[in-house]
């Protein structure tokens, strides 16, 4: 494991043990192992996300049904499964980007299925999304792309471009770019970046609003292996540094085991696997793809 991850894991244990805000629903978080398998914390943590009996189908074809799980604050959960098992669909249901057919989704105290548009926007303003493709706006500058990450919290014309943005927003965007090591490219057009750089900017955009939950949908899918490793290391180092709850999809079993505290496996229209990463082997996960 990289030195940066070791340091951030250590800082995470101190962060999570100092959580005192229990005014929202809580549960006993699964024991958090370090990479050697030893427990480093077992605190009672707020639940950031709870899904119960979730079902979704497209045009009458069921994608998954009866999916239930919860995420406690600061946890990193990997979702694995073969193509077509509904991993991306599940994430989009969690954010209310597509409607689920049945079940309940509670994210940061918001009932996603019953929420108004305004409530959904308020919930999403506390979340960040990093997609397979970076999804930057190509003709705008890097800084403008990151400033737009604040639109959920600060809607309106002033955050349409870095040129109109108030000084604190521009500074926050530059600080986010600094964290991903790309502050020197702030004024470059987004379509002039390499794939790895673009994905780093996407991470900065997701982090600039200081989200409580980060969602990553195969963030390394469009990158070569070396750039993919860099992006994953950076993504998780920053997420753990900020104490953010992470839910990510990966087809890379090693990534799922290395970066996830827990692994959820989707297969055959359900979620047959919900286990701690430390107790899982790569072989067991490969079984989900059979």
């Amino acid at each position: 494991m990289c030195v940066r991850c070791t340091q951030t894991l250590a800082s995470l244990s101190s962060t999570t043990s100092s959580v005192t805000n229990f005014d929202i629903e809580t549960l006993v978080a699964p024991a958090r192992p370090d990479r050697t398998g030893a427990d480093i914390s077992a605190p009672v943590l707020p639940v950031d996300l709870r899904v119960t009996g979730l079902a979704k189908s497209f045009a009458g074809t069921p994608i998954f049904k009866d999916v239930s799980f919860g995420l406690s604050r600061g946890e990193a959960v990997a979702i694995v499964g073969a193509n077509g098992t509904g991993k991306s669909t599940l994430l989009r249901c969690l954010m209310g980007l597509i409607p689920a057919d049945a079940g309940s989704i509670d994210v940061l105290g918001t009932d996603v299925r019953g929420a108004s548009n305004a409530a959904l926007r308020a919930m999403r303003a506390q979340m960040g999304l990093v997609s397979q493709k970076h999804n930057l706006v190509p003709r705008l500058s890097v800084l403008s792309n990151v400033v737009q990450g604040l639109l959920g919290q600060k809607p309106g014309l002033r955050h349409w471009s870095q040129a109109f943005a108030p000084a604190p927003s521009r500074e926050a965007a530059l600080a986010a770019l600094e964290k991903v090591g790309l502050a020197h490219l702030a004024s470059r057009r987004a379509d002039r970046l390499s794939g790895g750089q673009s994905q780093r900017v996407a991470i900065a955009r997701a982090l600039v609003g200081q989200p409580k939950i980060l969602i990553a949908d195969e963030p390394t899918a469009s990158l070569d292996p070396a750039a993919g490793e860099d992006v994953m290391d950076l993504f998780f180092a920053l997420a753990r540094q900020e104490g953010v709850t992470v839910i990510f999809i990966s087809h890379n079993i090693d990534h799922a085991l290395q970066y996830g505290d827990r692994v959820l496996g989707l297969a055959q229209g359900g979620m047959p696997l919900d286990a701690r990463a430390a107790g899982l082997s790569a072989e067991e996960l490969r079984g989900l793809y059979d």
Binding site: M95, L97, L120, R121, A122, M123, R124, A125, Q126, M127, G128, L129, S131, N135, L136, V137, Q148, G149, L150, L151, G152, Q153, P155, G156, H159, W160, A202, R205, A206, G209, I215
Partner: peptide, 14 residues
């Protein structure tokens, strides 16, 4: 890009 901005909680017009 639209989905990514929607996911930040941005309004439709934004």
């Amino acid at each position: 890009p639209s989905e990514s901005l929607t996911a930040t909680g941005a309004r439709k017009l934004d």
